[in-house]
Amino acid sequence: MWRSVASNALTLFIVILVVAAAMLAWGRQQFSGPGPLAQSICVKVDKGASLSSVSRTLEEQGAVSDARIFRIGADYSGRAAQLKFGSYLVPPGASMAQVLEALTAGGQSTCGREVNFRIGVLKSEVVLRELDPATDAYVDVVKFDPTAAAPAEFTEAAADADLRWQVTLAEGVTSWQVVESLKQANFLEGTVAEVPPEGSLAPEGYEVARGSDRGALIAAMQARQLQVLADLWAARADGLPYDTPEQALVMASIVEKETGIASERKQVASVFINRLRQGMKLQTDPAVIYGITKGKGALGRGLRQSELRRETPYNTYVIDGLPPTPIANPGRLSIEAALNPDVTKYLYFVADGSGGHAFAETLEAHNENVAKWRALEAAQGAADEGGVQGN
Rank of each mutant, 00 (worst) to 15 (best):
262 A>Y: 03
266 K>D: 14
242 Y>I: 02
308 L>Q: 03
226 L>D: 13
307 E>Q: 00
294 K>E: 14
236 R>S: 02
236 R>D: 13
256 E>A: 05
276 L>T: 01
305 Q>W: 00
259 T>Q: 14
276 L>I: 05
227 Q>S: 14
278 Q>G: 09
298 A>V: 12
257 K>Y: 03
254 I>R: 03
260 G>A: 08
266 K>Y: 05
299 L>D: 07
264 E>V: 06
237 A>V: 08
224 R>E: 15
282 L>V: 09
304 R>C: 00
236 R>G: 01
276 L>A: 07
233 W>Y: 06
275 R>K: 10
246 E>Q: 15
303 L>G: 00
284 T>P: 04
224 R>M: 10
278 Q>V: 04
273 I>Y: 04
303 L>A: 04
296 K>T: 05
239 G>L: 05
261 I>H: 08
277 R>V: 02
269 A>E: 08
291 G>R: 00
288 V>L: 14
226 L>E: 13
272 F>K: 02
280 M>K: 08
299 L>E: 08
246 E>F: 04
233 W>D: 05
283 Q>P: 05
306 S>C: 01
232 L>G: 01
303 L>R: 04
288 V>A: 11
263 S>E: 13
241 P>D: 13
307 E>L: 00
307 E>P: 00
292 I>F: 11
287 A>K: 02
283 Q>M: 14
306 S>L: 00
